[in-house]
Design a binder for these strands. Structure first.
Lengths: 201, 201, 201, 201
DNA sequence: GATGAATGAGACTTCATTCAT
DNA sequence: CATGAATGAAGTCTCATTCAT
């Protein structure tokens, strides 16, 4: 609750956060018991309340941490946009890969921020908007079909990212880089054999 | 716990299931209390245990119900596949639309079966496999690029379906038919202007 | 929390209220444990919460009960005023005695309502106002010195009542009737030998 | 726990006592937390235990302090009694006023010693005895009605003092001197118009 | 088929107090 | 003289579940 002042306190708090993240990610908010968290941190229950005002508070702190990290990520992505390579596909691959890299880096936190948090919806929304505005800029430059609604595209990409994160990424059964390439190939080139095109309306 | 024999019993059980579904869908498993379910059904707690052996049991029953319905759906989809028109895009649109229609039909049940259930992962897997095998059949017929890994495509489609279901479908803010068209257009034709093609590896 | 519906429930609630009153009266709010209350009622803790939403709630219910009883008392006192005997002193004795009788009737409740409740101050205030307005009426009829501030008198009487209630009445070491007589004698006739009078300002 | 030796130590202890008194007076014993006391003293919890062996100990120390001060007061009152004027009413006014003055001087301590302490009853008893023996002496000198039980009178006076202390004195809404005059007037002269006298038994 | 009443088990949280520095 | 960190003990409350009618 009061921020720890010495090295030992900071260390203890980190341990608690880590243990909490693991429990939340594995068992969800309600199945996670404070007693388990402290046991896994080698502490007793009152110590927990030395660092967090409640069980909700740790959860919140983890969510906030995820949120602020993801904001940093999206900013850095935007920056790289400036040095933009002339190969549009490669650029998108890189972006998606870096998103995957970020998400896979701390799987517990990702599961909490992206799937467990009540804010999750809002976080996804923000991500969608970022992707959308990026895509629209590129669409205006002629890289993409002019008649494509980039909102839809953005939603689809986010959906795919969510899905893969939940199913293959956090479990480590797919490589971020390869995955990004395959997804982008699909979205960029579509499913038809080369040269074909179909009207769907 | 034993199946109700009389008409009144069946009716009561249905009321309980409905109330339970609403609570689970809105608040999740743990936030849902048996006391609330029975209150909303105009019953008392012991009555609840006349029809279900536990809170877990109702939840399970709802999940199972969703699961069996979705199996029926996928079978009917496969059947229609046999009689189908030669326009591949339209066919896919129809399939996806019918999935959306199914999911939107009972939003509470969908949220439970698709997002809340611990089986959700497995259910999604099954769906993915069905989609994949369908797509592969069509790929062999030359409808799709031969070098496309249909596992990837299937996963992406499922991801998109999940995402839209969670964000726009259950809330009623998008029409299943239009949505299906837009998604399929993207997947079929890709994002590039007509005629272009890009190597992503 | 929900009012008991059957005879057994009402009986149980009464038992809880009684046990609670005894504990509160003897040990104060904080030293009183719900666990003790239920033990003394032959129940388990959850049963307590079947009848009261919290520990605060029982306390409040007891205070309210005291408060409403005292209001009834003061009304009945006012009524008796109508049949007013022509002996003013006797009338006052009777009133004070009936107050003592009331307070001594349920000592636990009295201790709670008069000394432990955060409302106690307010309750005393109300009592003071009632006494004061009664006295003023009698003052206007010429029974009392015209230059006496009846607010002061009322406060003194209430103070004395409180004091005796706390020290001798609830412990049973003084008889209400005799006590009332002695107090009234003092207030009415003062301390001086007959005929004397002293200026105090 | 051991008495502080240095100047700084004594100063710190005084700060703790003061903070403790304020908390106890405002919130009662149980609502008062050691953590709050030390916070308001700009100290940490272990420091508290450097000066007091427990929470009970500080409280006790405050009560004892009040008690010893009140003993000094009653002694000084007795002394002044010896040198006193022959105007009995004025003398009593002065005594009561000096009691009020004393009580109002440190309101926190008064609230603790007179109302919060478990010893309060005993303290009041002692006070009552002192007042009683004083009054009896004066009664023997013929100042007061011979048939008046001075125990009763003493109890009443103490009751009134308590009441006014709790309601108007500590809050500052009445002046000690004026209050004392009005009370004494009532007790000395009674409520009847001059010359009247009533039998109450 | 239904209900009023009761409970076992366990979760979160608080607080006075101490350890080690 | 003082502090950052830690803990034992205990209390309030909740909830799924069952008993007895």
């Amino acid at each position: 609750m009061t921020e720890p002042k010495g090295r030992k306190g900071r260390e203890t708090k980190r341990r608690l956060l880590k243990a909490a993240a693991r429990e939340f990610a594995n068992n969800g908010f309600h199945e996670t018991k404070v007693s388990t968290i402290v046991k896994n941190s080698g502490l007793t229950q009152p110590s927990f309340y030395l660092y967090f005002s409640s069980k909700d508070a740790v959860f919140e702190e983890l969510v906030t941490s995820f949120q602020s990290k993801i904001i940093k990520l999206s900013e850095s992505v935007r920056l790289e946009g400036g040095i933009e390579s002339n190969d549009i596909a490669k650029r998108i691959v890189m972006i998606i890969e870096s998103v995957f890299q970020f998400l896979v880096q701390d799987p517990d936190l990702t599961r909490i921020g992206l799937f467990l948090s009540p804010n999750a919806k809002q976080i996804r929304n923000e991500l969608t908007q970022i992707v959308k505005s990026n895509l629209e800029a590129e669409q205006r430059l002629g890289y993409f079909r002019y008649n494509l609604d980039m909102e839809i595209v953005a939603e689809c990409i986010i959906g795919v990212i969510e899905h893969y994160t939940a199913t293959h990424l956090l479990s480590g059964s797919k490589e971020p880089h390869i995955l990004a390439q395959q997804i982008v190939d699909l979205f960029i080139n579509g499913m038809l054999p080369k040269g074909d095109s179909i009207k769907t309306t």
